[in-house]
Design a protein around this nucleic acid. Structure first.
Lengths: 172, 172
DNA sequence: CCCGATACGGCAGCCTTGTTGACTTTCTAA
DNA sequence: TTAGAAAGTCAACAAGGCTGCCGTATCGGG
């Protein structure tokens, strides 16, 4: 009887995290956390007449200088027309430099200017600060789990992209 | 010497997860995972001329039937004009029922209709399916870490709200 | 009983950021 | 050399945020 109860409890523990209620908790946690995750950069961007889309562009140009518009498109997962509007303002404002491709003159290779780098750093430092605080509070083991679940949640395509982004050759 | 190396390794391990590079990985994981997280419901909604905002409203009305417009506003963190547009279409289309409050007749208590419940279930089942798959692949321990980090990332206010949402009295 | 506060709704208009469609420039393969 | 594919740009539209302002119903304290 007592053993049966304990068995029940153990099975329960294993399955607990898959109940609809646990899943709902996870869904809500994603919603609330993502809102916080974007809040700090958003506040900075609002003063500059930029939006979240500008931040994303700056981020990925910074992490892979010289990438083409099409590559950036693939990473961001939006249409090129949508990206173009954002990119145009960044170029006009002198944050991004768009050079005609050396191999293929149809391509545009994107780089951040000094000003662009400065803004990117400001934005990502705000975001990193929050992430750092969360990591520190949760501890290394929790962080590992956090990344595992997020990774498992991605579409296979995206996951491949994400993993390929691990270490980029800076030689382009 | 060996101990020193081990110590170094342990300190390194403790700090490794706080390097800028690790934080960047976390940031990108959030971005990619959140996109996947919303993709399945978005696809269903697109066919019905609804958007993500409608899904969010349905979700929180479903999880706490009878809540007022103001409470919903507080949870969603948007302006009432913004919510109102969404809510109006849901009421017009017969997915949500807005009843005058019993205690306070100024309030509107929101409930899902049968149709609304059906759509909510369809949307959330799609989202839960992905979450369930991710949880299963990552395992219970990872899930615990996942939730810990997300929780630590929230604003204190939001976190309190999130934790209060744990078990709601259904007696309203 | 009245008067300020609260809850909700509506209208107008703005911005960002997604969409599709049509166009130019450039490259490549037949 | 020419047709078609690929890269990028311009135009127009929609969703869903936002602010500001006003109207109505209701509540509660003085």
């Amino acid at each position: 009887m007592q053993d049966k109860a304990r068995l029940q409890a153990m099975v329960g523990e294993d399955l607990l995290f898959l109940t609809d209620d646990q899943l709902r908790r996870g869904i809500e946690a994603m919603f609330f956390a993502y809102r916080a995750f974007t809040a700090d950069p958003d506040a900075i961007l609002a003063d500059l007449d930029y939006g979240r889309a500008h931040h994303r562009a700056l981020h990925f140009i910074n992490r892979d200088p010289g990438l083409t518009v099409t590559s950036l498109l693939a990473v961001l997962g939006v249409t090129k027309q949508s990206l173009n509007r954002v990119l145009r303002t960044l170029i006009e404002d002198g944050l991004v430099d768009s050079r005609i491709g050396r191999r293929d003159r149809r391509e545009r290779q994107l780089h951040l200017t000094a000003t662009g780098t400065a803004l990117e750093r400001r934005l990502s430092e705000a975001q990193r600060a929050r992430m750092r605080a969360a990591y520190r509070r949760a501890g290394p083991q929790a962080v590992a789990g956090f990344r595992q679940v997020l990774e498992a949640m991605m579409d296979p395509e995206t996951r491949a992209q994400y993993q390929a982004l691990k270490d980029l050759p800076d030689d382009r």
